[in-house]
Each structure stands twice: as structure tokens, then as C-alpha cells.
């Protein structure tokens, strides 16, 4: 029983650390943000297991939900800006070619 519980804990924590690493290492802003939201939701699962349901609720709603929504909006702006820079570059090169 306690071995089983320990294995369960180990799986929870490995997934948590894996999600955090993936969120930190991914260079694409939208992907990083979505991984961060997944990390926040998983973290609230872990906290529910540690008998902290209040904090789990707050993390899922505020940390992952509202924080994630804020970051997604910023990530979308960043992605658009990159597209913009690319567009500028193509305009420049076409000018030079002329």
C-alpha cells in the first residue's frame, strides 16, 4: 500500500517537473505558455493530493487560469510581432532586388 502510494507520488512529481522543464525550455512563446498552464493545472492536482484543496482551487483558477490567459494574450502579441518583422524583412529584400 505504502509502496503503491510512493509510486503514485513519484509519478505525480516526475510529470510535474517534466512539464516545468518543457515550459522553461520551449522557445516558442505560445507553446511555452500552454505548457505553463498545463503545469499550473497539474500543480493544483498535486496540491489536492497534499490535502490542500483551497490552494489547489486558487492555483487552478488564478495561477493557471487568469495568469495563463494574460500570458497567452502577450504570447499572441509576440508571435504577431515576429510575423511582422518577417514581413518587413521580405519588403526590404524585395526593395533591394528591384
Amino acid at each position: 500500500m505504502s509502496i503503491l502510494l510512493l509510486a503514485f507520488d513519484a509519478i505525480l512529481l516526475t510529470t510535474l517537473l517534466g512539464l516545468a522543464t518543457a515550459a522553461v525550455l520551449s522557445p516558442e512563446p505560445r507553446r511555452a505558455t500552454m505548457l505553463f498552464i498545463a503545469f499550473g493545472l497539474w500543480l493544483s492536482l498535486v496540491w489536492a493530493r497534499l490535502s490542500a484543496p483551497d490552494v489547489a482551487l486558487a492555483e487552478a483558477a488564478i495561477g493557471a487560469g487568469i495568469g495563463g490567459a494574460l500570458m497567452l494574450a502577450a504570447a499572441r502579441r509576440a508571435a504577431r510581432r515576429h510575423a511582422d518583422i518577417d514581413a518587413d524583412a521580405t519588403i526590404d529584400t524585395s526593395e533591394d532586388a528591384r
Binding site: A20, A23, V24, P27, P29, A32, T33, F36, F39, G40, L43, V46, W47, L50, S51, A52, V55, E59, G63, G67, M71, A74, A75, A78
Partner: peptide, 27 residues
């Protein structure tokens, strides 16, 4: 990491680590 969004994600994960330690000790 250079871009602010990635810095912020790192910052939030840092905070989550501290919160997680608190919750682990409270259990």
C-alpha cells in the same frame, strides 16, 4: 532567457516551487 515572457514563466515557476515547499511542509 532573454525574452520577457520566458523570464516571467521562469519567475512564476520559481514562485510555484516556493508555494509547493510550503504545502509540502504543511502536509
Amino acid at each position: 532567457h532573454e525574452p520577457l515572457l520566458r523570464k516571467l514563466i521562469g519567475f512564476n515557476i520559481m514562485g510555484s516551487g516556493v508555494f509547493h515547499l510550503f504545502i509540502a511542509i504543511a502536509h
